[in-house]
């Protein structure tokens, strides 16, 4: 579980996060949504420890980030997995080497043990035959799956994904969404996904946090988002005719 209390972050005069308080639950797929410029990426990077925040606190299963020593932060980071928007695979390494990288850095396993684990996670993301390909030879969807494999190879307690299905076709996007949800359930980890994709919101949003202008505007789930009367949320989530119709049908069926 990740608990965030009164989080503030500025860049110069620009006050990006203006006091966010929320929590992300273990074993659930938690989504952060909001318009561009609402502070989603900055929030995610604060959660990852990539940005130092000015005020507030972030606790990872009771460990307050700002009270940890350098070594403790490094240890905590080894328990985090991250799927970047552009996958961020290392160009000079093969897919198998990319996935093995966190094991080489953080574990003292033998080469055969690491290879077994790499085979296991690549099989988990349905990439059994891609070991020796370079990232540049893989499609966008494959790259995302390799990034997920790399993120989970070290059995993380926390999985973060920044727009994991941006730039993917709808079918591949659903595959990635389902994979993230399955992994969250299977390994009972705390997953936080930053997304713009309303399909993801409806499909995997066990907890949804909506940010607006650096503030927490609304939080709920994929169920409650249909019933919310919050104008900012409805304007954002149901901005397309299709989703307005889906909502209308849902409300007619369920109320």
């Amino acid at each position: 579980m990740i608990e965030v209390k009164d989080l503030h972050k500025s860049f110069g005069d620009a006050h990006i996060l203006k006091g966010i308080t929320t929590s992300f639950e273990k074993g659930k797929t938690n989504l952060i949504i909001g318009q561009s410029g609402s502070g989603k990426t900055v929030f995610l990077k604060c959660l990852l420890g990539l940005f130092e925040y000015e005020k507030g606190s972030i606790s990872y299963e009771g460990k307050n980030w700002s009270e940890l020593s350098r070594n403790e932060k490094t240890n905590l980071r080894s328990e985090m997995g991250m799927v970047f928007q552009g996958s961020a695979l290392f160009d000079s390494m093969t897919i198998a080497e990319n996935v093995m990288f966190p094991l080489r850095m953080f574990t003292k396993q033998s080469k055969s043990e690491m290879e077994d684990r790499v085979n296991e996670v690549l099989q988990r993301v349905n990439l059994e035959n891609a070991h020796n390909k370079m990232p540049s030879e893989a499609s966008g969807g494959m790259q995302k799956r390799v990034a997920i494999a790399r993120a989970i190879v070290n059995r993380p307690k926390f999985l973060f994904c920044d727009e994991p299905n941006s730039g993917l076709d709808p079918r591949t996007a659903i595959v990635i969404d389902n994979l993230i949800q399955e992994i969250t359930d299977e390994f009972n980890i705390t997953t936080v996904v930053n997304t713009h994709d309303m399909n993801s919101v409806m499909e995997i949003g066990e907890k949804i946090v909506f940010l607006k202008d650096g503030l927490l505007e609304w939080e709920g789930s994929s169920e409650t988002i249909f019933r919310t009367e919050n104008e900012a949320v409805t304007n954002f989530v149901y901005s397309s005719n299709l989703f307005r119709k889906v909502r209308k049908m849902y409300l007619e069926e369920n109320l």
Partner: peptide, 16 residues
């Protein structure tokens, strides 16, 4: 290029 494609962020997230 590693900075632009977030590969450096990936290293930092891993605590490297």
């Amino acid at each position: 290029t590693m900075r632009v494609t977030e590969q450096i962020d990936a290293l930092e997230v891993m605590g490297i």
